[in-house]
């Protein structure tokens, strides 16, 4: 069976200091060429800190950002033209900030009708039936349909966002930090809803988050991004429990945890994206870094079984 989503050398560069004519002053590599594959029905967790390229990856996967290189295959069909309408029927996006992803001047029904009308050309009666079905699935009361977005709490608004993504009948959802704007008690409600929907409708998720514990709880496999590259990839139960890349270990150790001493974290921060180091991007912060790490970029390679790491000296 072909994977639900597959990227082939997908990369994104931004031009920095653009001029009216002539070439830009600098290029910023938001995402280095990346190959990822997600099987149907699987949840791939994507973890990374701000500036690691996870949101750029997500926007490319749904066609909101044209890739600079490489292409995306969705359910076996290559989509290399950035056209959200073409992507929309197969893959949908759930935004981080539920409130700003809903137009404040439209009712919930108008918001949910848009994908049915413009992606599927459904008639009025069919739209009504479909919206009722989806709205029930995300456990919201039908009277909410006539209200405006500002009347909803964050958790409710996020369910509406999920309902909109489902309305497009896409079987693959890219969830970009879907619960980071929510309080913990509500976060669990939304995560459980996502798990139920996945089981009911046979969905495939790409779950992007900076919260390691949340990603671990929902994912089958996890990819760790650092500075625009996948540095480690493997089964969810092993990536944080037995990390092979020093960065993954730093992440896992830094997560504040009840019953663990304050770690302190290694000093140092991300390298300057406009002046990237020639070798491994993590070398400057890595306790194990050698001359080789500073000169040569490590490639993602299998370390043990289906666990991959981009490191010259895996743990």
């Amino acid at each position: 069976m072909s994977p639900a989503v597959q990227t082939h050398g997908l990369a994104c560069r931004f031009e920095f200091g653009r001029r009216l004519f002539g070439p830009p002053r600098a290029l910023l590599h938001a995402l280095h060429p990346t190959d990822l594959a997600v099987a149907p029905g699987e949840t791939l967790g994507i973890v990374g800190e701000s500036g690691c390229g996870k949101s750029t990856l997500a926007r490319m996967l749904v066609g909101l950002q044209p890739p600079s290189e490489g292409f995306i295959e969705i359910e076996g069909a290559a989509l290399n033209r950035a056209d959200p309408a073409e992507f929309g029927r197969r893959i949908q996006y759930v935004f981080q900030d539920p409130v700003s992803s809903l137009n404040p001047r439209k009712t919930i029904r108008e918001i949910l009708e848009a994908p049915l009308r413009y992606l599927h050309g459904m008639g009025r009666a069919a739209r009504r039936a479909r919206i009722d079905e989806i709205f029930g699935a995300v456990r919201l009361r039908p009277e909410f349909l006539t209200r405006y977005p500002h009347e909803f709490s964050g958790g409710q608004a996020q369910r509406i966002g999920i309902a909109r993504a489902l309305a497009a009948s896409a079987r693959i959802l890219v969830l970009d930090e879907p619960v980071s704007a929510l309080d913990v008690s509500v976060q669990a409600q939304v995560l459980n809803l996502l798990a139920d929907l996945k089981a009911e409708w046979g969905l495939t998720y790409l779950f992007i988050s900076h919260d390691l514990a949340v990603v671990e709880a929902v994912s089958d496999r996890i990819a760790v991004l650092y500075f625009g590259s996948v540095v480690e990839q493997g089964p969810a139960e092993r990536v944080f429990a037995a990390p092979r890349h020093p960065y993954t270990r730093l992440l896992a150790d830094s997560a504040p945890q009840v019953g663990r001493k304050l770690g302190g974290g290694a000093a140092g921060e991300l390298p300057d994206p406009l002046d990237p180091p020639p070798g491994c991007a993590f070398a400057g912060r890595c306790p194990l870094a050698t001359e080789r790490c500073r000169a040569e970029r490590p490639l993602l390679r299998p370390v043990e079984g289906d666990q991959f790491a981009a490191c010259h000296h895996p743990l």
């Binding site: 709490s153 958790g155 913990v184 008690s185 509500v186 976060q187 669990a188 409600q189 995560l191 459980n192 798990a195 390691l212 514990a213 949340v214 671990e216 709880a217 929902v218 994912s219 089958d220 969810a236 139960e237 944080f240 429990a241 896992a252 997560a255 945890q257 009840v258």
Partner: peptide, 23 residues
Amino acid sequence: KRLIACVPELGGGRRRLEAIPGL
């Protein structure tokens, strides 16, 4: 008690989380 139960902990593996219904 229930709020603490809602917070996923690293190392717990894949699971269903506790939630507090309502707002």
